[in-house]
Design a protein around this nucleic acid. Structure first.
Ligand SMILES: [Zn+2]
Ligand SMILES: [Zn+2]
Ligand SMILES: [Zn+2]
Ligand SMILES: [Zn+2]
Lengths: 164, 164
DNA sequence: ACTAACTTGTTATAGTATTACGTCTGTATC
DNA sequence: GATACAGACGTAATACTATAACAAGTTAGT
């Protein structure tokens, strides 16, 4: 199982297990929820978890084509819609790109750290701040259904390189 | 001066003063910072503050055309780049749309509440959570430069209408 | 006036996403 | 098994969002 404490994108780790773990977890999750984890959907999640960074829909489409799947935009977008809807992946709005969820099964508000030097994205575990955020919404009378937090900055690797 | 405590998008208020105040504040701000608040830039900010909701670049472009300005995409995008860069407007990544800043002059991390029923957007004052957010970044060794928070949900008006 | 830096006008093109329609499954019902 | 239905996929066309590249005009300092 994946360790929810550390953001994967910035850390070295055994990547073979990483992909397998993600797919296994997704299979289990979909079985429980009676969701159809079809070959295309599985392949897209596999593609996403192979790279620990955000991929655009058309980059995913290229890889699908190489693997013999359909290669028109809706193929990728429909699979991505499914994955995002069911929390198996997230969309990084800032980049118009998608990333596999690093914390499947854990309730979490996605918090993405995006390095604008090397474009790496890491998802951190973020326990929603019931203080500032919710109270701001309550003051306005707004009912929050979903929150995303995207931070732009510099990743540890680029800091070390002295690019900052 | 604008009241930073209440999100404008969801509240009734004197809109004539609202636009004038925003433009006046922007003029003052640009004068102080020696920024060139040109006619196009001013017009775009005026357009944005006339509607308290997010507008796409091409919607802005239509209004620019009606007012006799250039009507090619770069005209709008360049003005928007200027406004966003200098904190006079924000981009709502989720909507690929732009909105006038409601809290010019106040240091703030933009926090947007987006109603997915009526598409209204309100910007709330949000004091960054030095706790959860920063500590998550620090654990990863990530250096945050800018953070945006976007919440999807239902606005007070739509809740009242019973659309929830 | 001369120069450099910045802003605008214009054309073309790149990148992202959706609509629409036909077909093919799997599943439930008769 | 035949029928009906819903969900998923294949494909073509199109809509929406954003940028590159270059020319021309403006501003401010020398
Ligand atoms: Zn990995
Ligand atoms: Zn980096
Ligand atoms: Zn107003
Ligand atoms: Zn609403």
């Amino acid at each position: 199982m994946l360790n929810p404490a550390l953001p994967l994108g910035f850390a070295h780790h055994d990547h073979t297990n990483c992909v397998i773990d993600t797919l296994t977890a997704a299979e289990t999750y979909c079985a429980e929820k009676e969701l159809r984890f079809t070959p295309v959907r599985r392949k897209v999640l596999e593609i996403l978890s192979q790279e620990h960074r955000a991929l655009g829909a058309y980059a995913i489409l290229d890889r699908l084509r190489e693997s013999g799947f359909g290669s028109q935009p809706p193929i990728a977008y429909r699979a991505l819609d499914f994955l995002v809807l069911n929390g198996l992946a997230h969309k990084i709005e800032r980049l118009n790109a998608f990333i596999a969820c690093s914390h499947l099964g854990y309730t979490h508000t996605p918090f993405f750290m995006i390095c604008h030097l090397c474009n790496t994205v890491a998802e951190a575990q973020y326990v929603p701040d019931r203080g500032a955020l919710e109270s701001a919404a309550q003051t306005a009378g707004f009912h929050i259904e979903q929150t995303v937090v995207e931070a732009k900055g510099v990743c540890p690797s680029c800091i070390t390189k002295g690019d900052i």
